[in-house]
Design a protein around this nucleic acid. Structure first.
Lengths: 233, 233
DNA sequence: GCAAAAGTGTTGTCCTTACACCCATGC
DNA sequence: GCATGGGTGTAAGGACAACACTTTTGC
């Protein structure tokens, strides 16, 4: 087989637009939220869509996703992870567009944009039934991804304030997983893990007995080895 | 904000080639193998690369990956799953190419291609140190993905013959995970799961006491609900 | 009969689950 | 003082880890 020149080969490849779409989750009022924008396409007039943008010619797709987050929220240190590429040929009414979905987690309280100005709104994930493009499918995929990930990795803390109570943490897990958890067992679990730092501070302005505040010990977590063996299906 | 026409919008998006690369795993001689082809690019002369191809204009990326498998192995019912998109702007020497990595699992014994003719060869995953493009990184990512997945899902059976012994199954897990497992506990685990069908047949032509043969009960597995709650990190 | 792997049980430890009461604070 | 959620302990059951000997077959 004759060897080929890379540039000549690639020049003949079919080319198509690639975009990123960010599923930006937040947590407020004991509900899992997602940040959406009104679609600016005729076909999807009035419907909500994920925040996305094209991938530029010399740009990593991760970089494009971070750029979307920065542009829309003004925040640059947001948790972000690639989830899946979606490629149905008719998924975009304007023609073939492949998109790579990203899941990102941010603390709503840190995020100070004027949401009414630019048609950007937080929505309860549980009450969304329809979206522009295939964005409902992408949202569902990212929600399932998140449900699995928060059980295996300390991601949920990205959705909470730096200081949080055990009640808030449990509410977060219950909202994302859609189940009720036993309070004593939940607290025991985190006590056993020994990855929460007791700040010796109390909640303020709650209409009941205030709870203790904690922060997550990322330093200790990052030093501890992962124990991941266990066949179970 | 004025509404836009989809086609006009998409026409202005940057376009780039998208490819798929398949990490095709097999299992033989108690080793995890991967199917590779010699690179046909000048720059990577003599080096091995994954099996890939471009994604065509109206083709789903999943379909492109299945097409690669069909073309290279002649098999159409192979397990396949999307793993991750790789997008470094310089990952292909011929210019910007985004690739989506797929992991596929097949039973080497079912696969009858003439491997010497078309420069296609099975390689021990553990002895690969260098590959063309960023394919070593892609292979490593898929290997880690597989290590995690075989513990949570019954994927490993795709790498084994229809009928297999518990010893073969354990060898498979040990090869993929790179660890030793206790034989009694391993068998007990699968006995408790009650998802293996005892075929009342014995291994043939083994130079020692033959073991019983089993097949996996996919029907029962698919009917059983997933129990997936358990915070652990 | 010897080599090689098949097959099998018990025990201790740990984790998970289920469950109920008193306490501190705001109003 | 009452409403609200904070905070705690225990007992039972199930899962997992460690461990050794007998059996069957091919040669």
């Amino acid at each position: 087989m004759p060897l080929k020149n890379g540039a000549a080969l690639v020049a003949e490849y079919p080319k198509m637009p690639v975009t990123v779409d960010c599923v930006i989750f937040g947590f407020d009022d004991n509900e899992l939220k997602v940040l959406l924008i009104r679609s600016d396409l005729e076909k999807y007039q009035g419907m909500w869509s994920l925040l996305g943008d094209v991938v530029n010619d010399t740009e990593e797709i991760d970089a494009a996703a971070y750029r979307v987050l920065d542009q829309r929220t003004g925040m640059t240190d947001i948790y972000l992870d690639q989830v899946k590429a979606f490629s149905h040929p008719k998924r975009h009414p304007g023609g073939r567009v492949i998109t790579v979905a990203y899941c990102s987690l941010l603390n709503i309280k840190h995020h100070s944009l004027q949401i009414t100005e630019n048609e950007l709104h937080w929505h309860n994930v549980s009450s969304i039934t329809e979206m522009a493009f295939d964005h409902k499918e992408i949202l569902d995929t990212c929600h399932e991804w998140l449900q699995k990930m928060i059980q295996e990795h300390p991601l949920g803390f990205n959705l909470l304030p730096d200081k949080f109570s055990l009640r808030e943490l449990q509410n977060l897990y219950e909202a994302i997983l859609g189940i009720q958890l036993d309070r004593r067992n939940f607290r025991k679990k985190f006590a056993t893990m020994d990855l929460l730092i007791d700040l010796d501070e109390m909640e303020q302005d709650v209409p009941h007995r205030p709870g203790k505040l904690y922060k997550f010990n990322f330093e200790k977590y990052n030093k501890s080895p992962r124990k991941w063996i266990g066949i179970d299906f």
